[in-house]
Design a protein around this nucleic acid. Sequence first.
RNA 1: GUCCCGUUCGUCUAGCCCGGUCUAGGACACAGCCCUUUCAAGGCUGCAGCACGGGUUCGAAUCCCGUACGGGACGCCA
Length: 473
Amino acid sequence: MSKQPVRVRFAPSPTGYLHVGGARTALFDWLFARKHNGTFILRIEDTDIERSSEEMTRGILDAMTWLGLHWDEGPYMQSAGFDQHRDAVSKLLESGHAYHCFCPPELLEQKRKEAAARKTDFKYDRICLRLAPDEVKRCLENEQRAAVRFKVPDGSVSFEDAVVGEVTISSETIEDFVLLRSNGQPTYHVSVVVDDIEMRITHVIRGADHISNTPKQILLYRALGAPIPVFAHIPLILGPDKTRLSKRHGATSVMAYQEQGILPEAMRNFLALLGWSPGTDQEFFEDDELIRAFSLEGISKANAVFNPEKLAWFNAQYIARLPHERLVPYLKPEYIKAGLWRDSLEREDAGWFRSLVDLYRPRAKVLQDFPKLSRFFFLDHVEYDQAAVDKFLKDEKVRGYLRTLADRLEALPEFSHHSLEAAVRSLADELGVKPAALMNPARVAITGQAIAPGLFDVMILLGRDKTVKRLRI
RNA sequence: GUCCCGUUCGUCUAGCCCGGUCUAGGACACAGCCCUUUCAAGGCUGCAGCACGGGUUCGAAUCCCGUACGGGACGCCA
């Protein structure tokens, strides 16, 4: 099977948004496909019609697109294959791998409850397997509602999981699971297996929560006479309380992170390292590096706790080092939202904007920080932080210093970092104060805040006129 | 209750397959110091871990067994 071209699929069910766990599975699928020049297929498992919605499907597609996980085929809708799934069940019925079951679901439900009360487990008791053929026929003719169950053969099922290693499960513990509901709808197991066969999936890479489904599915592959793919079950992502990540743990939707100002690059890099390791100390990966380094062997067997702080760190790092051309498309919408955008920023003021962005790169944690922190550059009126004013601008003497400084700056032959620094320092010297005693108030006067990037950088970017004007308060 | 899987710093992990090179390496977070005009960024240092118990071996984080703990699955959900 390794000779076959690699085909992997990501198969989310549209009963919720794409959460970080699903996103990581998708990422691993995608990486594996790319690594082996294979095909990455997106298949929406919408067979649970009641709980599935088109809106969720849309959301999943959007999240995948945002993450940059482009699929080569699909999205296929699993529901489109109902007929095929049903055909497969018929074949299994004919070949004796499956049988009709007339047990009312309520009865089974009750038996399960009783078993639970007795602290034992209930496995379908095969009552209908013992039905004589003509009895079955009569029931069917009477239009009795019938489900179809798989006849689990004796023995045990084992498979070599690419992550976990050999897994063996005794047939004793597998019940005769339902293939076709009494309403004629195929169940999940049939649908996945038939679709995976149909789509010639070579590697099934999915969450570890599917590990106990795998023996059932392998049984189906065998009964249908189809080649069995390689299985790779990746460990789950847990919340801080070490239970499976869910809504309870706060933001788990991938798109929620987009809204928070996280870069897809950072998310991808972070997710890649959650449960997978290149075996080296490398932390930052461009896509092509990641594809090259990725392998199933590097996937860890143990569950991983989702650590938002590390994601935040990756984000800050990516903001700091992403090339300007790649960063601006993320920044523009944020400036628009903040009402600070003007088209000249990507035309005549592009150079200015670039310098401004560079000023905030090491300071921004999320994209929104850029407009938030650089706001004073864009407004005509300074929005003063009261605490900062109280601390640095209350003293009339200090305000006098700033006015003097304004005069000096106005008269400067050139408005450069060097000349500004010299001017400030010499004035401080003349006044017999520390440079900081001049700079801190100046910062508040110019930016309105006690916290800002380097004062001279700010002055230059703001321009001489505005700087001088703001110093005269 | 049954079955399956897992267990290295608080967290993500390297090392485990091919026992000695591990006084267990890196990263996040945290603390301190340096740089410094504020804030960040950056640099340096520190804190902190092989779940436990047996075995095998000259030697075990690494191999074997058991225990504990954690997770997952047991549906006419996917």
